[in-house]
């Protein structure tokens, strides 16, 4: 079986985002770009499955929609251990555009398990995985916190309100994964970094699909009122404020 891990290129999650052009554009100066955290966990789990010969995984490929500027992030995924990479050479305009581009590639080459992170930490859309599955007309399972392969069958753990479910499904399947899928993201070793330089990144030109949304402008959150400090010896004051000022208890 082959696994495809879809990766998104996002600002490091500790970035204090700033905007330019009257809040129409993200100020990319000084931003460190990283693999979206959930995609990184997906890749880690895919490689764990490949490391275990009993699971029967031949190859782990990463796929990304983005211009050449995001290749360092793809190389990072290769350094962590992916075997090869696909890049669709287009600006990732919106979720449906990205999903359509990935779907075009996947009509040309088949994968058994397709992993997507539950959201990207930049646009928080939670949509590419589900849209990709719909374009391909294959099953999808969302909120996946565990994936295992037993006797060629695929077991997915799905988080539900107040618990979890174990789901069995065939291939191909799109699993949309969240926390729990792997414990810690795998880090590239020096050997991996050296090997990544020669691993292939195959570049596909985009198909004709169009985005359906346009981001008009950004707003920064309104600054919160300054914190009111309460004497630790007098917690009753907090109770009063929550009752009479905030009116939340």
């Amino acid at each position: 079986m082959n696994i495809l891990v879809c990766i998104s290129n996002v600002p490091d999650t500790t970035t204090k985002v700033k905007f330019i052009d009257e809040f129409k554009k993200l100020d990319t100066s000084g931003i460190q770009w990283v693999i979206n955290p959930w995609d990184e966990l997906s890749l880690t789990r895919a490689l764990e499955l490949k490391d275990d010969p009993s699971k029967g995984i031949q190859k782990v490929t990463v796929a990304h929609v983005g211009l050449a500027g995001s290749e360092p992030t793809i190389r990072k995924a290769l350094a962590i251990g992916a075997d090869d990479a696909i890049r669709v050479n287009a600006e990732p305009a919106d979720g449906i555009f990205v999903a359509a581009q990935l779907a075009e590639v996947l009509k040309k080459e088949a994968y058994d398990i397709i992993l997507c992170g539950i959201e990207s930490s930049d646009y928080n859309g939670s949509m590419v995985g589900g849209m990709l599955a719909e374009f391909l007309d294959v099953p999808s399972v969302s909120s996946v916190s565990g994936i295992n392969i037993e006797n060629g069958g695929i077991d997915l753990t799905r988080e539900i309100d107040g618990g979890k479910e174990v789901i069995v499904t065939g291939v191909p399947v799109v699993a949309i994964v969240q926390k729990g899928i792997a414990k810690e993201p795998r880090i590239a070793a020096m050997r991996g970094i050296m090997m990544a330089r020669t691993k292939p990144i195959r570049v596909f030109e985009p198909s004709g699909s169009r985005p359906m949304t346009e981001l008009l402008n950004y707003e920064k959150p309104k600054p919160r009122a300054a914190c009111k400090y309460i004497d630790p010896e007098n917690p009753k004051q907090l109770v009063e404020l929550l009752q009479n000022e905030a009116k939340v208890i």
């Binding site: 539950i118 859309g125 995985g129 589900g130």
Partner: peptide
């Protein structure tokens, strides 16, 4: 969880743009 699972598929099915969250 439910909306995240199915809204993207519904959007594609209806050829609709999705405003998430």
């Amino acid at each position: 969880n439910m909306g995240k699972a199915i809204a993207p598929r519904i959007a594609v099915r209806l050829k609709a743009g999705l405003g998430a969250g």
